[in-house]
Amino acid sequence: MKSEIQFSQFDSTNIRRVRKIKEFLDSVELELSEDIEIYVSAKEDEQIIACGGLSGKILKCIAVAPHKRGEGLILTVMTYLLNAAYNRDRKELFLFSKPKYLSFFEECGFHLIQRYENEIMLMENTHNLQEYKDNLIKLKKDGGVIGSIVMNANPFTLGHQHLVTEAAKRSSWLHLFVVKEDASEFKFKDRIDLIKKGVAHLKNITVHEGSDYIISKATFPTYFIKDKGKVNDLHAKLDLYIYKNHLAPALGITHRFVGTEPYCKVTNNYNQNMKKILEKEEAGSKPIKVVEIPRIEFAQKAISASRVRALLKEEKYEELANIVPPTTMEFLMKEVVNGRYN
């Protein structure tokens, strides 16, 4: 007898409902993000008229049907999403949306981190970026060439070591950021530990823990599912702009070093974007020179972390010893003895 708006919350196991969300998002030209855990939907007369999703600490896929805009539905959807996050003890949150909805989300307590043209923006509900930048400024070094590298090092190989050593040679000071997200085979703690051991011979380097603002699930969610080859170009660009406009200025970075990428299309594409964006002359930010350093090879094959992981799986430890530094080898063997790769 009555028609009213019904809000519901469900998770990704609810396949029928998720499918309807996907259809709705299609109709408003948004893509369903595959990593969403919690969905919120508003229905009227059995039709979805608004939705949103929570993935980790990131809110995304938030949409209202065009004919239902301006009725404050977004505030209720946001309330549900925030409650879902708070109930999971996630308080410091990020949000992806289109830049034209900036003011809506500002009303909900979020503020802009970075936008990319009219395509995408990232917001946060804390002042953590500012705090992070304030801390970086304290680590700023003087010099002509202030180099930087961002690496996951999963795990640290001779290839990584070569890249870092070369970059350090060409820099007055080198800042090395380690991707912090624990979404790779090797844990952050182990990855950064192996890097520190592997660069101990260099005196002009700071090894930084990464953060949410540099290749993280917040800035670049699809990086962590890149094996599926589904990296979102927009996320890559957003990540690079955050680097260019926020992190690099804090440390006075002038150069970014990357290894050439012969195998991985996704990484190669990221490197191409990097050149385009970081080197571009734009008002409000200084261009950063991108320097590609050729990868070293062993037995006619470029050394890569994925090769290391493959050799580990195949238990070809002798071959492995040829492409990782002794410090990494020692760690890997200890792990093998402890049965981690059985």
Binding site: L75, T79, L82, N83, Y86, K91, E107, C108, G109
Partner: peptide, 18 residues
Amino acid sequence: SCGHAGTLESSDVLIHIE
């Protein structure tokens, strides 16, 4: 521990404590 209550709707308030 943390707690929260309220909504973002008009005339309301959303509160989080920790």
